[in-house]
Write a protein that binds this DNA or RNA. Sequence first.
DNA 1: TTGTATGCGTTATCAA
DNA 2: TTGATAACGCATACAA
Lengths: 341, 341
Amino acid sequence: MRKRKGAGRPTISDVAEKAGVSTITVSRALRDPSKVSDHLRRKIDNAVKKLNYVPHSHASALASTRSNIIGVIVPSLTNNVFADTLRAIYDAFDQGAYQVQLGNSRYVAKEEERLVRTFLGQGPSAMIIAGTDQTDVTRELLENAPCPVVQIMEIGDDPIDMMVGFSHFEGGRAAGMHLVQKGYKRIGFLGARMDPRSHRRMEGFKEAMRSGGRYDPDLIMTTTTSSSVTLGAELIGQLRARRPDLDAVFCNNDDLALGALFGCQKAGISVPDDMGIIGFNDLEMMAASYPSLTSIRTDRYAIGKHAVAMIQSALEGEMPDQKIIDVGFELQQRESTSRKR
Amino acid sequence: MRKRKGAGRPTISDVAEKAGVSTITVSRALRDPSKVSDHLRRKIDNAVKKLNYVPHSHASALASTRSNIIGVIVPSLTNNVFADTLRAIYDAFDQGAYQVQLGNSRYVAKEEERLVRTFLGQGPSAMIIAGTDQTDVTRELLENAPCPVVQIMEIGDDPIDMMVGFSHFEGGRAAGMHLVQKGYKRIGFLGARMDPRSHRRMEGFKEAMRSGGRYDPDLIMTTTTSSSVTLGAELIGQLRARRPDLDAVFCNNDDLALGALFGCQKAGISVPDDMGIIGFNDLEMMAASYPSLTSIRTDRYAIGKHAVAMIQSALEGEMPDQKIIDVGFELQQRESTSRKR
DNA sequence: TTGTATGCGTTATCAA
DNA sequence: TTGATAACGCATACAA
């Protein structure tokens, strides 16, 4: 007697037996109820409940070469921006039949490629990946993937499949234009990490400077060091050392902006009168600081929600309303750029 | 000819054929190389490389009733504290043969229970779960789980299996004692969310107040609202309205502390002379703010690293050095509590 | 140390 | 609409 016993939990054949049908009928009833007659469906549903049957996802994945995994790849786990989007994704999927599988690429393209390979190897139901700067190989892997793919956080002309986000170029431009309009003259840029999205924000900023007649490359200060509040204070200190006439900065992100504010306060520079500051993303703290900080508000939670909605409709075979969703952004003007002229 | 084709990728029998051995030998060579002779092992390794063979995790899970999943359950995705620990966990597992599966319980015990059920249903290799306040059912499920279980973030007397963290009670006590020692007299407590760990920090604080002769329940202000910088400013405003003589606060966490600082600045109250402020966790911004903020430093990354190390040694059958690891905490005194007496 | 025969729980295929 | 049967890819039990 060499019966191997599994985890001991009820299987699909237990359900089939109890309902007096075959296993395949149970399988069908569970995956597409419309393929089974009402009569049997009711019997099966009852049996499922009575036995407290839970489908075995590994067996299902093996037999169908398709798993219930939703692969999600982001470049950072600690960046609040992605955390908000992840929360939306988890909120949307946690109740359903799908399992979110998260990967952290650490802003390294090769890592991202490895993760895509790993996830694709599991036959995921869908993939969500941050940004549009995949390597050629990654791109090809995803283009050939037999599942919906959503690129999130930003938008572009050439989606792998679907996209949700906003234009970082335009966001950067709006920030720059705001400083020009407020009458600041020597407007700097502080940038940390300088990943592709940061670059595009910077390009948008430069464009605004040019069109406003304020472009001065000497006022741009960037580093590939990862962003932090401390770094913001350091960078503004360095830029002021180089250019004491600096009177405003657009910061790559809100951490830097808060740091720049602290740096100014420490140096006795009045914000917004002697220095205008604008950040990016509008994290919660921006409205609470003193003085409050102007920022470009982005709706990261909405990005996650849209991504899931797109996937779900694709999985249900519907053509999505649009392949590219622009959630936009919104300037939140606050005290840090509201100087009395 | 009713051959079903899989994903088309090489299987273990392709490897076996190429290496001229049986499939089980390949299987063994991959899982425990010491069980196979050097000679065959080399042949197998070569075949694996040539074919670019990747084990099929679902098939493996099905056959062994054990998956390579590491289940991780945290109460929040956006709280930096957990983000740091998650990053450590992902850093440690990303390269290896394990897949991290993340769940967000949203601080809801029933959600946590549901997630534990879901994960356990997958036959995980290990479980990591935040805190020590599981429901009785959750606890029993985990106690009977046929895999290592690590509770993280805090420690206690009665681990389900293993634990890594520190005493929040002692952390709160240290914060309170610091304020007493600095000569503050009417010392308040600001608490948001008030999850179990927050409660224990508060109890530690109370203990410090009692032993310092400064206990005054009227100075304690808590809310179950989730923490934010904005909330910190609001809470200190409310507490000052009730008790204008308040001269120091211990904040539940750093967001609140930063908010309290902003609230004081807005109200024209000097920190630290008229108001001492101490936070908890010592997020990066605390050292950068102006004035810099005192906090209790905790090493969240180390917690994640230790948790993974404990799991790995348990998985390798070793008895871990200790079932409970206390990573401790450290008072970081800064300007916000450094008043001139 | 290595191999043979099965079984893991589900779904694709084909037939009724 | 339903069912019988053979995969899916790997690991366990047992034998050699």
